[in-house]
């Protein structure tokens, strides 16, 4: 199982839930599982956010594998100058 912690802004889409457990082996499955529990959430994250897996930022990818027990957090996509 993955430990998914939600930012304050995302908690508004999940009834105030601060964290949850999800079974997934890659980012695509993770977002699908979130969409099942909170319709629209996975799509919102895919469009607007980056996924951090154990602190490493993954942006614009669905295929990154996720090891069991990983800590997941979502942050706004990062740009730069």
């Amino acid at each position: 199982m993955l430990q998914v912690d939600l930012s304050f802004d995302l908690q508004q889409f999940c009834g105030g839930l601060e964290s949850l457990k999800v079974q997934a082996t890659n980012i695509r499955e993770l977002l699908e599982q979130l969409d099942i529990r909170f319709p629209g959430l996975g799509a919102k994250i895919e469009k607007e956010m980056a996924v951090t897996i154990n602190g490493v930022i993954y942006q614009d990818t669905l295929i990154e594998p996720i090891e069991d027990g990983s800590e997941i957090y979502f942050i706004p996509k990062i740009g730069g100058g």
């Binding site: 912690d5 930012s7 154990n54 602190g55 490493v56 930022i57 957090y73 979502f74 942050i75």
Partner: peptide
């Protein structure tokens, strides 16, 4: 844990 959420690698 970074202020923006995740743990630093």
């Amino acid at each position: 844990v970074a202020a923006y959420g995740p743990k630093f690698p």
